[in-house]
Design a protein around this nucleic acid. Structure first.
Lengths: 212, 212
DNA sequence: GACGCAATGTATACACCGTCCACACGACGC
DNA sequence: GCGTCGTGTGGACGGTGTATACATTGCGTC
């Protein structure tokens, strides 16, 4: 009944209402996407009257932005985990390449396994991902976009990406992966067989590597 | 005051309310995106009481889907225009390549010049674009996705795309272009200089051509 | 040409939403 | 011990989508 385990309420004051509202908002976004994060429902889950939210968030949109930042942070951490999962590779060139691939893989998996959070992170206008507010970042302090940039930098250093192709390369890589992610869970190809989908993801990452 | 030029109302009956509601919905989506197409406002513009809409659309979502179909049809026509604009080319291989490029160019321009309709077409779940309801199609009877497929088919016929790479290639091409389109007008890079943006679009299309 | 039915538009009402305002409670500093 | 200020409450307003019952009228049938 009370999934996060906090007792219903201590007294007149809540204790940490901001956190409770944010958690409720994240849960709503997780299953239902951005439109599902509705202020009154969040307060209901926190066991509090609707207007109490306004002591912590200026508007429904402010809450939504906070949820979005949390979603981006989760994605960043998924990327960091995928990067860490690589075994140490022989050549530095290969290491750099698998780094980029890990970023893309984590992105696509996140879109698959957390469609609601994914849409909340990217289908809602707001502060651009390129800005570095720590709320959007993972443990490394980098947000998803910055993690991608770093991966590309390492490719240049390792000599597997010509320096003259480096500028703005994150936009190309991001575009391709993001487009497929949208395609995957939003529409068409929803009922494409799993194996075929994975193969398509690999081909896309190949295309990026080859075409960058 | 009455942009489409129809007189305010004849009598008790409207004449073509369905069309009027759809037009109003399209106008709302054009500046404001999917969330802006609100049923009551559409009826207001048609000079009719809110519930009248329910004689023509089962729900707000049904209206939204009709608007979405119209947006897809507009995109299809933009693609057809771009295809027709090509001068006749010497080699059939080159013709096939410029065909694919025209599709991508039209897509990116549509996202730029009609952001509201673009988001309505793609940021809202619904019948997949791969289905061929004529409401989503252009003059050729093909919808945007089918136009892309046809362009790829022509590349195989002309011998500029190996047949073994053809299957599912539309997903790769669509992903890249769609991702950039989202990136363009949704977030980051909104204030990127025009020339730089165009250059980026060209590089993306290069990447697709090379990496497909 | 009159009639009746089905299609279309109206009236009223409900639940839900975001948000504003005035007020109640209570933790913390003087 | 008391006042102040941060936090939660109560009530209200205008907006939305939608259900249900009613009014009007165009059109096919006799």
């Amino acid at each position: 009944m009370n999934p996060t385990g906090e007792r219903p309420r201590s007294g007149y004051h809540h204790g940490d209402l901001r956190r409770a509202l944010l958690d409720a908002g994240i849960a709503l976004a997780r299953d239902g996407g951005p439109d599902a994060v509705v202020l009154r429902e969040a307060t209901r889950r926190a066991g509090v009257v609707p207007n109490a939210a306004y002591r912590h968030f200026a508007s429904r949109d402010a809450l939504l932005q906070a949820v979005r930042a949390a979603a981006l942070a989760e994605l960043a951490m998924a990327m960091e985990r995928e990067l860490a999962r690589r075994r140490t590779i022989a050549s530095p060139g290969e290491a750099a390449r698998t780094g980029l691939r890990a970023i893309g893989t984590a992105y696509l998996r996140f879109a698959r396994t957390e469609p609601g959070l994914f849409r909340t992170a990217f289908a809602v206008p707001g502060e651009p991902e390129t800005s570095d507010s720590p709320a959007m970042a993972g443990r490394s302090g980098l947000n998803p976009f910055q993690l991608l940039s770093a991966a590309l930098d390492r490719m240049v250093e390792a000599g597997v990406l010509p320096a003259e192709r480096r500028p703005a390369a994150e936009y190309l890589a991001w575009s391709a992966v993001h487009g497929l992610a949208m395609l995957v869970h939003e529409r068409t190809a929803r009922r494409m067989p799993r194996a075929q989908m994975r193969a398509l993801e690999q081909r896309l990452l190949d295309m990026v590597e080859k075409g960058l």
